[in-house]
């Protein structure tokens, strides 16, 4: 049984075929990266995995269970978390509150228990807080703990979003362009974190990324996409030197 599998996935938006017949498998514990020029369909694949869009064709399987067709909020319950290309945070809440919402699915207390202030409620809250503090330590967010997200610099917001995803304790983490908008130093931190997420936390990472330095550094395997279709798959070096990939990027540059 494969850990995560996408089979002949396809979606059309009106006349646009955004993703066409895409199949790949991600093994437990690896960093699997999808590259491709703008508009290749990378984010759309994430939206399909996140069940935001229903696919026109194909299926998605996670730990042997089919995801496609389920309600989108159940993705988290399966142990899949995500960050977004254009940061999607709870803007009017503090960093701590954002991370605590990441614990939502683990706080299985009912309103009645909460109204009665049962000890189990208190225990869950302490558990949530402890889990979140670990993430704060891991990502060095301590000094922003009580800051309002809306006022933070872009680079920090990006890390907060990663933290919120980690707070859900995922088995599979989807990162949509984790380095976009970051300066070289922040990108370097991000690379370290992705390595640690894989090695220390044992979380499998499925990533979309443009920065080929970062891709080569952290990826076990790479998949190249162009105009919604898979054009190459292999190690970072193999994919980068693949004629179809060079062609796709040059073609994009000429346009």
């Amino acid at each position: 049984m494969s850990f995560f599998k996408v089979e002949q996935l396809g979606i059309r938006f009106g006349g646009v075929v955004a993703v066409n017949d895409v199949s790949f498998e991600v093994n437990r514990g690896e960093v699997f990266t999808i590259i491709g020029p703008n508009g290749a369909g990378k984010t759309t694949i994430f939206n399909l995995v996140g069940l935001i869009y229903p696919p026109t064709s194909g299926r998605i399987e996670f730990e042997g269970r089919e995801l496609t067709g389920m309600a989108p909020h159940r993705v988290a319950e399966f142990g899949i978390a995500r960050t977004f290309q254009n940061i999607e945070l709870f803007e009017h809440a503090s960093v701590l509150q954002n991370l605590l919402i990441g614990r939502h699915r683990h706080r299985a207390t009912s309103l009645w228990q909460e109204l009665l202030f049962l000890p189990s409620v208190r225990r869950r809250e302490i558990e949530a807080r402890e889990a979140v503090e670990k993430v704060i330590d891991f990502l060095e967010l301590a000094k922003y703990r009580d800051s309002l997200v809306a006022g933070l610099p872009y680079g920090v917001r990006k890390v907060v979003e990663l933290g919120r995803a980690l707070a859900t304790e995922p088995k599979l983490l989807l990162l949509d362009e984790p380095s976009s908008g970051l300066n070289p130093e922040e990108t370097d931190d991000m690379a370290f974190w992705i390595e640690d997420i894989k090695k220390l936390l044992g979380i499998t990472v499925l990533m979309v990324e443009h920065d080929m330095n970062l891709v080569s550094r952290v990826s076990d395997r790479v998949l190249a996409l162009n105009m919604g279709e898979v054009i190459a798959e292999g190690t970072a070096a193999e994919v980068q030197s693949h004629p179809a990939v060079i062609e796709a990027y040059l073609g994009g540059a000429v346009k």
Partner: peptide
């Protein structure tokens, strides 16, 4: 303080993110 009250606030601030937190938007 309540889990559902917090989920309501999260949903009103960002529906997309709320889905990924496991909130039935």
């Amino acid at each position: 303080f309540s889990r559902i009250g917090i989920a309501m606030q999260a949903t009103s601030q960002n529906q997309l993110a709320a889905y990924y937190m496991g909130i039935p938007v």
